[in-house]
């Protein structure tokens, strides 16, 4: 097998997961000016829900998938009501701490309910994948890349071509003005949390068969996704996607050529390099901290 194209394929596959979670980050950030530190736990919880439905209860895969996403929608709504909404008028620091608290709560509640043993979730397809041109195309990675592409396309359509999408954009750009026009701002923020939770959930379910389903998967994925958003340019949707893919590729090559245990450290190094050299990221000037 040819190593470089193989690594490239794997890197893009894993990077697509980071990109999905990063999209959730960016959406919530744009709507609320808050970084949701529990974004990774959305992926983790969804993966566990999937294990419960598809493995423990033996439901069909598609039904489990829909049920897990329904669960994520509810979780996103509860998250907004319990973690963000009571603090919406406070500065960013209490909100950050609150989302960190929520992250610990979600991870450890899952641990308390399911125990520390990593779980295995089978992939969607029976077949392992296909060999073409010296590269093995793993079926789950193909699915990840495909679903990511579809979701990115959907999101583009939703934001650019629907009235609700425009209202969401208006809300993220100027909440007070949006409310003066009659846009239900609280509802829009709720929608953002629900959608971001579902997005994070899809990422978690897709990546679960590749990794183990473990309590720690959430924070690992969240760190990568955050690094991806910084590489891409904070608050920028295109940047989140490109940053996620880039990080996946860098990490995969790093693991192959440098060191496996430290591949997570590599992402951190890239993050720090960007913070020092180009904090506005690859795309754009919108370093979006509130003054």
């Amino acid at each position: 097998m040819d190593l470089v194209p193989q690594l490239l394929f794997t890197g893009i596959g894993i990077g697509a997961v980071y990109a999905l979670v990063a999209l959730g980050f960016v959406l919530i950030f744009r709507a609320t000016n808050v970084v949701n530190f529990a974004q990774g736990e959305f992926s983790m919880v969804a993966a566990f829900l999937m294990v419960v439905f598809a493995v423990d209860l033996g439901w069909p895969y598609w039904l489990s998938f829909l049920a897990a996403l329904g669960g994520m929608a509810v979780l996103g709504a509860l998250f907004n009501l319990g973690v963000y909404y009571p603090l919406r008028h406070r500065s960013y620091l209490p909100v950050i701490i609150s989302t960190i608290g929520a992250s610990i709560l979600l991870a450890n509640t899952t641990l308390a309910l399911y125990g520390p043993q990593p779980q295995v979730l089978p992939g969607w397809f029976e077949t392992q994948g296909i060999l073409a041109g010296g590269v093995f195309f793993d079926s789950q990675y193909l699915l990840i890349i495909g679903v990511t592409a579809v979701l990115v396309a959907f999101q583009y359509w939703f934001f650019e071509h629907t009235l609700v999408g425009k209202k969401l954009q208006a809300t993220s750009q100027d909440k007070e003005m949006a409310s003066l026009l009659g846009i239900p701002v609280a509802g829009m923020i709720m929608l953002t949390f629900v959608y971001s939770a579902v997005l994070g959930g899809i990422a978690g379910i897709l990546v679960a068969p590749v990794l183990f389903v473990s309590i720690g998967m959430g924070s690992t994925i969240a760190l990568k996704a955050f690094a991806a958003t910084i590489i891409g340019g904070f608050g920028d949707v295109t940047g989140a996607i490109v940053g996620g893919l880039a990080l996946g590729v860098i990490e995969t090559f790093g693991a192959a050529y440098i060191s496996v245990p430290y591949k997570d450290a590599l992402g951190f190094l890239v993050l720090v390099v960007f913070l020092v050299v180009r904090p506005q990221g690859l795309f754009g000037e919108r370093v979006a901290e509130k003054a």
């Binding site: 009235l163 425009k166 209202k167 954009q169 208006a170 750009q173 100027d174 007070e176 003005m177 949006a178 003066l180 026009l181 009659g182 846009i183």
Partner: peptide, 27 residues
């Protein structure tokens, strides 16, 4: 009651037409 506030507050990331269309959000 429609309020056109000081400083116009046109959404910077939306087009002029989209801004105008959102004016009907109350109906």
């Amino acid at each position: 009651v429609a309020h056109v506030p000081e400083g116009r507050r046109v959404f910077p990331g939306l087009t002029a037409r989209e801004n105008i269309m959102l004016g009907a959000s109350n109906r």
